[in-house]
């Protein structure tokens, strides 16, 4: 199965716009951008993404809380979640993986290759 539908959860509007350009214009995916965990939880069932790209540090509901809440929703629990973070410590990245993220991507990222990275992560995940 190929990757088509991606949900992006991020509070910083600048990053949402650049991810939209990167995933829609460069990579050609179908994308739904959410400005926080609450809006993601409301829309995740109807949009039914194949992959969720989730920012770690958000003001109200942070990435880990959002991840935990997503895991509670039937059918949504299986959707691979990729966390995105500006944290550089490895220990923190390991923690996110233990919490159920399939991969952790760094910020800053290269908008020209983000789509390819997500595709590779998705393919690796589904072939397992």
């Amino acid at each position: 199965m190929t990757l088509n539908r991606i949900m992006h959860v991020e509070d910083d509007e600048s990053i949402r716009l650049v991810v939209e350009m990167s995933l829609v214009d460069v990579a050609g995916f179908e994308l739904l951008s959410c400005d926080g965990g609450e809006s993601a939880l409301q829309q995740v069932v109807s949009f039914a993404p194949q992959l969720i790209l989730l920012d770690v540090m958000m003001p109200k509901m942070d990435g880990l809380q959002t991840l935990a809440a997503l895991r509670e929703i039937p059918h949504v629990a299986d959707i691979p979640v990729v966390m995105m973070t500006a944290k550089i410590q490895d220990a923190e990245k390991q923690h996110y993986l233990q919490c159920g993220a399939v991969a952790v991507l760094n910020k800053p990222f290269d908008p020209m290759t983000l789509g390819k990275q997500l595709l590779a992560i998705y393919q690796q995940h589904t072939s397992r």
Partner: peptide, 24 residues
């Protein structure tokens, strides 16, 4: 911390690497 953390992540993405490092 919140605002500089955000800038550390976003500046580099917009090609402002040095600024991103300063925010970090």
């Amino acid at each position: 911390i919140a605002v500089t953390h955000q800038l550390a992540g976003s500046c580099g993405t917009f090609g402002l690497t040095v600024l991103g490092e300063q925010a970090r």
